[in-house]
Amino acid sequence: MLYTVLPLEEVLEGIEQEPGPTVQLTLGGITVEAEPLGNFQARVVRVLSTDPRHFLEPHCQPGFLIHGQIV
């Protein structure tokens, strides 16, 4: 349930578009869920860890672009 000053049609514009498939990757020992973008790039969606320190790591923030081969 949303409680916002923005009109709902503005917030939910484009909601019909399904998000892309995600993969699990390990970044420096931290498991993250990431969305492959092609061109050897992926974007971090969320951190999968119970260690709270992992959530403060700069390279694990949601939206961070990972470069490199995804195997």
Partner: peptide, 17 residues
Amino acid sequence: VLPPRNKTTKYEHVIPQ
């Protein structure tokens, strides 16, 4: 999950932080 045009604060990330 809100459409990508929104700038969002993701609570599942903020809480462990």
